[in-house]
Write a protein that binds this DNA or RNA. Structure first.
Lengths: 150, 150
DNA sequence: GTTTATAGACAGAGAGACTGTCTTATGCAA
DNA sequence: TTGCATAAGACAGTCTCTCTGTCTATAAAC
């Protein structure tokens, strides 16, 4: 009988998925142990895109490539958890600004630190140079995928 | 004001996530255009792990790292869409075997072909050697992440 | 000043994961 | 052989996160 999965396991998409899943699990588990028990991976869709001065929901939605309704759901959840504050935009009566609370700043700092720690652990296996090379290659791949297909 | 995101954008996890999301979108969009309109990314959690001779739900669940209830939901959905057939296991009255239908075989073949095509497109940007090096590095990283943390 | 565009809110739906419980079948041991 | 622990899966319910569609209020443009 022929093999069902001729080239599986070595596919770029599967590798990226597996690595992302592992890192996400590791980072959010560690964050929970530091006290951020209510922080969920989906929340990083907000935190990653916040400006220091605060951002509008619609801008966050565009950056995260999701609908403004979905982004509103996430920002509302983060507001209830005291990671962000939502206040009216003084320059536009329709808009609101999502701004980080001190706890939100702490969360971003922790997530950043834990991400770096995870990479440092990987570097002990591969060596820093190789890890850097992979990361540079991934950045190139991401850029290549941004381009429209002909 | 200090920068909120000191090292963002170059993080391994974010790169893997972005690339996986793009590839997944691209591959499943192309698959839909080939007639697999009802195939969803979550279904690959089943298809990726199926044995040629058929697999039990509980085994698929372990391989996909999810509960058997969740896996049963997915295999049931795939059965309704005629990608798999669920039949009793002749060797164990409690168990059922999930086996691919011809349409399921076609779907796996298409997904495999489209994945390779996406990587070939990337190779035109990076060169095959660089892409291979990145893939090898990712495989090493995945292996490193499998090891328990000390 | 009227029309159009924009920001967000509200309601509802659906996918995909989870936990908990239950039934049935297997297999081993008393 | 009976009786119990184990295992496979089914059933019910919940939760998170995303979507579409519609609506209000404000801003901007003509």
């Amino acid at each position: 009988m022929t093999d069902i999965h001729p080239v599986d396991g070595a596919r770029l998409a599967q590798l990226c998925r597996a690595i992302y899943d592992k890192l996400r699990e590791e980072i959010y588990l560690a964050a929970a142990q530091e006290g951020f028990v209510d922080l969920r991976p989906s929340h990083s869709n907000v935190l990653r895109h916040l400006d220091a001065a605060g951002s509008r929901i619609v801008d966050l939605a565009v950056r995260a490539d999701m609908t403004k309704q979905s982004m509103a759901y996430l920002t509302d959840a983060l507001a209830k958890l005291d990671y962000v504050e939502i206040r009216p935009d003084p320059t536009d009566g329709r808009a609101k600004l999502v701004v980080l609370t001190p706890r939100g700043h702490d969360a971003i700092a922790a997530l950043t630190r834990l991400s770096l720690a995870a990479e440092a652990r990987i570097a002990t296996h591969l060596g820093q140079a190789k890890l850097d090379a992979v990361r540079d290659g991934l950045a190139e791949i991401r850029a290549a995928l941004e381009e429209p297909r002909q």
